[in-house]
């Protein structure tokens, strides 16, 4: 199948290096400490953060740092065919773990000893790149909850189809069976916190794809930063003196 037509356009009309439209909203769950909705094109993810709060299971309490927990789920209506998936299948357990590890790396857990932070992410619409969208949504929600972090984590995926590196794969491109590289970075520190790839890729093309994904992450970071600053200013001026 042809994923990039001779004019250099992809199936949804994007250029190979083009991202889907981003949209984010903070404060969507009123009872949560922090929450956000993040959209990348048709992928839509909601994240809610509770905490730092008292550890529910005393045996898991740590005296020098906070416990970070994460739960990923996909809404039944998120995909084209409505499936009733059992909770805690392999895929969602794996993604929960990935998100937890990525977020834990940037949260300053030592500042909140003997407490726990819960992150809940749910996919409302799945159109490829749910992993990256979840991480971006979780970052926004954590920042909204006022949890101290080293840096924002942002994530973006990239692939390689028809001999062209493609940024931010959608569902059709994702299920083409080509390589799918998900990268998560700390933009300020310029460090990689997440790198996942299925399928094989030649060394030199990998460099290109990875570079592309990193650029994507940075674009996401600028957007997230804008949204957060706007939100903080809103809160401050509304509160008044």
């Amino acid at each position: 199948m042809e994923y990039v037509n001779p004019e250099g356009l992809r199936l949804d009309g994007r250029r190979p290096m083009e991202m889907r439209q981003l949209r984010a909203e903070i404060g969507v769950v009123s009872k949560a400490d922090g929450s956000a909705v993040f959209e990348m094109g048709n992928t839509k993810v909601i994240a809610a953060v509770y905490g730092p709060r008292e550890v529910q299971n005393r045996s898991q309490q740590m005296n020098d740092q906070a416990l970070v927990r994460c739960e990923y789920s996909m809404a039944n209506f998120s995909t084209g065919d409505r499936m009733r998936k059992p909770k805690g299948d392999r895929r969602s357990t794996e993604i929960s773990l990935v998100i937890r590890q990525t977020m834990e790396a940037c949260i300053l857990t030592h500042l909140m000893p003997r407490s726990q932070i819960d992150i809940f992410v749910q996919v409302l619409q799945a159109d490829g790149g749910t992993r990256s969208a979840c991480i971006n949504a979780a970052t926004l929600a954590l920042a909204d909850a006022g949890i101290p972090m080293r840096d924002l984590v942002t994530s973006c995926s990239a692939g390689f189809l028809n001999g062209t590196p493609l940024l931010d794969l959608n569902y059709v491109e994702d299920s083409a069976g080509g390589p799918d590289v998900t990268v998560g970075i700390l933009p300020k520190l310029d460090k990689v916190t997440l790198l996942q790839m299925d399928a094989k890729l030649a060394m030199d093309t990998f460099e290109n794809v990875m570079q592309l994904a990193t650029e994507g992450c940075k674009a996401v970071a600028t957007y997230i930063r804008e949204i957060l600053l706007e939100h903080t200013k809103q809160l401050e001026f509304r509160r008044g003196l």
Binding site: R150, K188, L228, F237, L241
Partner: peptide, 13 residues
């Protein structure tokens, strides 16, 4: 409020 403190708001990092 913007007259009082314009660039005091910061975000993570």
């Amino acid at each position: 409020s913007s007259k009082a403190n314009s660039d005091a708001s910061v975000t993570v990092a």
